[in-house]
Design a protein around this nucleic acid. Structure first.
Lengths: 133, 133
DNA sequence: TGCATGGTTGCACTATAGTGCAAGTGTTAT
DNA sequence: ATAACACTTGCACTATAGTGCAACCATGCA
């Protein structure tokens, strides 16, 4: 089920949050799809928080999500064309405090844990592991 | 007095509002500078509302403002370069309900009231005239 | 000086958005 | 079945954002 009328400001609304911008920037640079636990280990934010931000990005039409077993992979939506243009702009924004660079480094490290191009492990950062409850 | 650290998400925050997007879109297309009363007559929104949105756009670094007598002229900021890129993206967004087209028409009509390239009259739309208080 | 006028802002109100906790869903492995 | 785990979500709370009213400031003109 999709929205019929897409509000232009909803796209900017979606990017008007630092956590969501971090997610989008990561995915612009890396291009690849990624699951939630990889993002948790890259951004060092709790899974429930990222899960909700991912949902917002999905609803804004910037991400598409696909379930594979226990994992859910998210990827950037690139159509219509102005989205590509938007991503180029996002990529051109200054990394004022080096946060995107740090995210990217952790993300690259984390991707090495994949096997066959697919995530095989859960959250690695101790502080953000799901409490077995 | 300017902010030292510019938050990237502040730019998107600034565009995450329909009224502000309408202002920016008008100015992207028309290029020219414009005063508040011209915007009131173009967007048909009360002056106090637009005045506040203009302030937010100014603080986000998207507009610069200059006072000339009783009028304050606002123009788009075009540096750094990614702002031009951003405006191109904004211009590419769909005009889902024709609102930008309508704004633009009223704006063009309103510009005809200028003399010597400068606004000489106040708010023309009856409903939004400042009540003489 | 007085007043109309272009524009701004303090205040109160309301709506919305982000967060953490804890409980929940669905899938895989034992 | 049972447990572990990747991910999601209902609830309560807090912070922030948008709005309208009315008062205000600043400029130009009679």
């Amino acid at each position: 089920m999709q929205m019929i009328t897409i509000q232009s400001d909803a796209i900017f609304q979606a990017l008007a949050d630092e956590t969501r911008l971090r997610i989008i920037r990561l995915k612009i640079v890396m291009g690849d799809e990624s699951c939630l636990c990889e993002l948790v280990d890259s951004l060092l934010e709790p899974s429930y928080k990222l899960s909700r931000h991912l949902k917002i990005l999905r609803q804004a039409g910037l991400l598409s999500s696909q379930k594979e077993g226990r994992w859910v992979y998210h990827r950037l939506v690139t159509k219509p064309a102005y989205l590509e243009q938007l991503y180029a702009t996002v990529q051109a924004l200054p990394d004022s405090n080096g946060i995107y660079h740090a995210d990217l480094k952790r993300f690259r490290d984390r991707l090495r844990l994949r096997e066959g191009g697919r995530c095989q492990v859960g959250i690695q950062s101790e502080a953000f592991k799901t409490e077995a409850g």
